[in-house]
Every structure is written in C-alpha cells, then in structure tokens.
C-alpha cells in the first residue's frame, strides 16, 4: 500500500480551490498553506500561456526532510505518508531548508485571519492543533483517509485534476494514469521519489 496522488496539469486551471480546501480542512493559521499553486508564464506574446503547478508535500519515499530531522519528528508510515510528530519537533527548520518543494512551513506565530480582532470561534476551535515554534505540512488528509474519505483537495477540485490511490496496485487509477501518460514527479532528478505524480504537463 502506497498512497499517491496524480495531478492532471492539462485540467488544472489554477483557481486555488485546493489551497482553500486544504485550509478549511486543517484550519491552518493565517499565512500557512500546505497546498499551493504556482503560476508561471511560458512563451512570448502573442503565443504566451499561463501555466499552473500545484504543489503540496510530495510524500517522498526518500525524503530529504526526514533525513535532516535530528529528533526523528519527521517519519514515514508504511503506506508512504510522511508525517511530523509535533511533540518531537524542536523547530530547527533544517527540514524546511532541506525540502526542495517548499512544502514545509515553520509556525513563526499562530496568526488570525482578521488581524486586530479576537480570533473567530472557528479559529479558536481549529488552532488548538497548532503549536507555535514547530513545523507543519500536508498530511495527505490522514484524518479523512482513516474515515474512508479522499483528501480535501482531491474532492474539492472543480477541474477534477486530482486523483488519489494506491501506487502499489498496478490496476489503480493512479497507477494506470502514470503508466498511460508517463507521469513523472516534480524534480524527479533529485531522487527523493515523491508520491505526487504529474501528467499531461
């Protein structure tokens, strides 16, 4: 069993729903995003196009972040999900520096979305899970997977550009997509063996 995601870049329209869906799922403090979409331009006028690259934690099988973590706070599960044990994190940020995907963020502070106001009840409820001075990142929506649901970004994506499944099963949708469209991870050359694959780039 190895959880993996395939992102169809020809479908992605860069709307940012994944970013907000993730925020809503985790209640991340202001300024923290586990799920981002990079926008960039290719070509010159009049044939220029805008392109999108959604990035999140790549759940690498050989993660650079895990290697540099001195306390073992970062660990990898049998099913391929890379997690952070926040009780063990000392906030040294070696993992943030090491991650080649900008997938980790350090909680400099727990900020509210309405600065200058008391936190909203939503934030009060959700921010209990966040500890200032530690590093956070995408957990592949483990809490949802445990309830048999797909990750929030996969469900919410209006372009249906995200697929989620088991990479160890050659018959799974993700495996077939990767095989059919020669899916590749982002920055494959770094050898981190991510579990996020991109197709039709």
């Amino acid at each position: 069993m190895r959880h993996a995601m395939v992102i169809d870049l020809s479908r992605c329209v860069g709307c940012g729903t994944c970013t907000v869906a993730c925020r809503a799922e985790h209640g991340t403090p202001a300024g923290v995003s586990y799920n981002k979409v990079k926008k960039y331009e290719v070509g010159k006028y009049p044939t220029a196009k805008i392109k999108f690259l959604p990035i999140l934690c790549m759940h690498c099988q050989d993660p650079a972040c895990l290697k540099v973590c001195p306390t073992g706070a970062t660990y990898k599960r049998e099913d391929g999900i890379v997690l952070i044990d926040h009780d063990k994190c000392i906030g040294c940020r070696a993992c943030v520096v090491a991650c080649p995907y900008e997938s980790r963020q350090f909680l400099w502070d727990i900020r509210n979305y309405y600065p200058g106001h008391v936190p909203t009840p939503y934030e009060v409820l959700k921010q209990k899970d966040f500890e200032k001075g530690t590093v956070v990142k995408c957990n592949f929506c483990l809490q949802r997977l445990e309830e048999g649901q797909l990750p929030a970004c996969v469900v919410a994506c209006p372009a249906q550009a995200r697929y989620f499944g088991d990479l160890d099963d050659p018959e799974s949708e993700v495996s077939r997509l990767i095989a059919d469209y020669r899916g590749t991870p982002f920055r494959e050359e770094l050898g981190t063996q991510p579990s996020i694959y991109y197709v039709k780039g």
């Binding site: 729903t17 907000v20 869906a21 809503a24 309405y114 106001h117 909203t120 919410a156 209006p158 249906q160």
Partner: peptide, 20 residues
C-alpha cells in the same frame, strides 16, 4: 457540482465569522 467547489465557496465560513 458533485462535491467540488470553488475557492469562494470554500471560504464562505470566513464571511460568516466576519468581525466587520
């Protein structure tokens, strides 16, 4: 929408909890 939503729809709760 069959489960999908947009960034605005996903943000609606912040419009509810809005001190302004």
């Amino acid at each position: 929408n069959y489960g999908s939503l947009c960034p605005r729809g996903k943000s609606e709760l912040m419009g509810l909890y809005n001190p302004y």
